[in-house]
Design a protein around this nucleic acid. Structure first.
Lengths: 222, 222
DNA sequence: CGCTACAACTCCTCAGACAAGCTGACAACT
DNA sequence: AGTTGTCAGCTTGTCTGAGGAGTTGTAGCG
């Protein structure tokens, strides 16, 4: 399926390319809209939309009466796109890194509220694994894993996990379609073992069990 | 300094607010440009610019002839901003998670080219630790750590590391200003030990040494 | 039932007009 | 000399009307 880009998008790409190539310095001013329009051979409103798009991506900033200025030399990495394009094994290894460390930290920092959260999400997950559609099961599974990460009380790790979730969710659903749910029952035990280690305040054990569980998930995909 | 927002930006904020409130479902279609323009009391081109800005932020997507659709319920997190605001200890724990796993994977996957890279960056780092300004030393240190992550041959981990680098760089420079470089010499040994473990294809040892080194860095900051 | 043609809708692009804001130059004043 | 006021000429901001191009649902036909 071909996908033709509107002129405004093409103009935005072209501007981004020139910005990246250093044609205009950081903080520098672009030519006026009318000039750019003539230069790229499009109308002024098209240029305006291109600039507005790059403003949305925090690359340009326009100030009325003054001009359009460069505030970043390249667009911030769009993690959603990066993760969509990356191999699922790469994504899972990233997840493994995050979650294993989170499990380790959680073992030191977990609060009573965190433990209660484990109980809830674990029992949800058990119910969902027995008699629910795939979607629910996946959500319940992710909810438990998120509970672990939350218990690490580290905003960066939580944010990282949330960034990974959409990609992981899709991969899990795809996987369940191919592969009948022959491993849910066994999984439940592995999940409870991780929670137990965190409850027992054993960082190394929590990390090891988390690593083993996620390695198994990863292996089942290859 | 006061800053008045243009109508188009205000319109984008309003749309984002409504999208976040669930007024339109994920994948749902927004009303037409003319309808929205009348509804918000602005011109059509203003709505177009607002939509274009949200398209730049990957919240909306417009398809000619079909309409404007919601592709995310909220703007993707701007990682640069997240990391700037996060506690440096949280950032370092994230880095530890990434780099420790990377060291483990590197021990299995490192190529001769990776080893050569270690040699170069390590000797650079040694020179810089002896008689260079702080900036150079920080760059050399980061270059070696990046070499480790690269040797894991995982695009996601590499991208994650690169996302963290600017924040880490600033923290290191700040740290060196306060604290005279009394630990460079000792550090060099720790770095070479990590490289040795990867060279010896010992995943657990590489991970452990990486963890211990980064834990020490983290502790020195508290 | 399946296919085609079409009408109604959508976004896309352009041009022109005017409003609003910034900047630098220069005159007027203290 | 230094400060203040004014203004012309630039910039972006907004609106409108026109026509082009793509999509979608549907009425009509075989």
């Amino acid at each position: 399926m071909i996908r033709r880009h509107p002129l405004a998008e093409q103009a935005a790409e072209e501007l981004l390319r020139r910005i990246g190539s250093g044609e205009w310095a950081l903080g520098g001013k672009l030519p006026g809209e009318t000039t750019l329009a003539a230069e790229l051979g499009v109308g002024r409103s098209t240029i305006r939309e291109a600039v507005r798009e790059l403003a949305g991506r925090r690359v340009l900033e326009s100030r009325q009466g003054a001009g359009v200025f460069v505030i970043a030399h390249q667009a911030a990495e769009d993690w959603d796109k990066v993760l969509r394009r990356a191999d699922i094994t790469d994504v899972l290894e990233g997840r493994l890194a995050i979650e294993t460390e989170a499990a380790r930290l959680a073992a030191s920092r977990r609060t009573p509220a965190d433990l209660k959260n484990f109980r809830y999400t674990l029992s949800d997950r058990k119910r969902a694994s027995e008699k629910s559609p795939d979607d629910w099961y996946v959500e319940a599974d992710l909810a438990f894993h998120r509970a672990i990460v939350t218990a690490a009380h580290n905003a960066v790790l939580t944010e990282l996990f949330d960034t990974f979730v959409p990609r992981i969710r899709r991969a899990m659903i795809d996987m369940l379609k191919l592969d009948e749910q022959h491993r849910h029952r066994h999984d439940q035990a592995a999940h409870e073992a991780i929670a137990d280690a965190i409850r027992a305040r054993d960082p190394d054990l929590a990390a090891t069990r988390s690593r083993e569980h996620l390695s198994a998930v990863r292996s089942s995909l290859i």
